[in-house]
Design a protein around this nucleic acid. Structure first.
Lengths: 220, 220
DNA sequence: GTCTATACTGCGATAGAC
DNA sequence: GTCTATCGCAGTATAGAC
């Protein structure tokens, strides 16, 4: 494969203007580009060169700021969970009935997937490639899982939800919310005329998910 | 990293006895090992050396039988969907009410995930790494998706299911069935005392999934 | 703090003996 | 049909100028 295209200045794909000398800004840019690449290829598959190209800096900067690829990966893994928890906490779920709380939580979870489309994929790679080793070390999602689980238990205790296994059902809800996005590139062939990320489709996903889960857990 | 461990005979990890000279048997063994490796690392991340070691043959055999890594990958992708369809077809779903048919289909889908634990992961990688390019070429899952979709539509038409979006709901059902396995290595940290692949837990997953989906789509 | 240049290793693919 | 040996490139990480 005669890939002879001269390397001179492949800074074209940069997301943001470079030539700053701001450490924090550069690190943040690298983190964002890294998140995207790790989402596609995981830790071992990702090429530092690709991250550099996307950021608009050279490979050397990545090693300067983060030491090595693995440390950069760990830095990327640290971010996701706290953001979810924060999103959940602004919802005032304690004040709502379990049913309303669950609806809001599902909407928030899906909106999170839209806002940070790479994070679910990074976690998937982490599970498969590294058996969740780094995932565990860098915080894990325990708080987020507990959040959903506790809400389900509350609903059951109050009698508004049917008896159910909180852990299993939490996994099911997470699957409902994230599969749509994680498998998007495959699903698109099943519905070529639809843009799965369009506001309309995302809204249909949210509405469908809420309808399915609420009816599914309600005590009839 | 002084990885000096002599390479001599790392045939230990082989799944089956080697030293056959049977083309079809060897190809099948390579395919199985490849499925496992592609499930972990995807096309680009997988090392042919790793497939060879797992199979118990040398790298050269892979190239002899399949030409190159990409062709081997395509061969791996060809297998999944037809097996699912076959599983669905033995269920005689046409003869059942939509509700019974959907229950059986979910059980079969989850049992498929247990029987072929790598396939869902291969497809995930395919979606993210290659945007589903090979997925589409090598058959796709259109028939399986249609199977679920049509069943949902039948239930709605018969009035036993509430009005719903068949495509979105199909995605939700697929997410329910597969997320449990695809995210297993991360989920295990949320329930360290449970073995997620034990028969009991899988049964709980099946029961929970059926209960959630049936209640979720039923016309109350 | 950012760059260019380069050392070194790992991996896909091939050649050729058995 | 299977092996050993090797080529050549791609990719991580470092050195050192600016």
């Amino acid at each position: 494969m005669g890939k002879v295209t001269s390397k001179k200045k492949e800074r074209a794909a940069s997301t943001s203007p470079r030539r700053t000398r701001d450490t924090e800004a550069t690190k943040a840019q690298i983190l964002n580009a890294a998140e995207e690449e790790f989402a596609r290829h995981g830790l071992s598959g990702t090429r530092t060169e690709a991250i550099a190209a996307k950021t608009g800096v050279t490979k050397a900067m990545i090693f300067y700021h983060f030491g090595n690829k693995e440390k950069l990966y760990r830095a990327v893994l640290k971010r996701p969970c706290s953001d979810v928890i924060q999103a959940f906490e602004t919802l005032d779920l304690e004040q709502q009935t379990a049913e309303v709380a669950l609806s809001r939580l599902i909407r928030a979870a899906i909106e999170y997937c839209v806002a940070y489309p790479h994070r679910g994929k990074v976690l998937f790679h982490e599970a498969n490639q590294n058996q969740g080793r780094y995932f565990q070390k860098e915080g894990g999602w325990q708080p987020a899982i507990d959040y959903i689980s506790n809400l389900l238990e509350r609903g059951v205790a109050e009698g508004s939800f049917r008896p159910l296994d909180p852990f299993i059902t939490t996994a099911h809800i997470m699957g409902i919310c994230s599969f749509y996005f994680d498998a998007r590139e495959n699903l698109k062939y099943a519905a070529p005329e639809k843009d799965l990320l369009s506001p309309d489709m995302v809204q249909a996903h949210i509405d469908g998910a809420i309808a399915l889960v609420i009816a599914g857990v309600k005590n009839h």
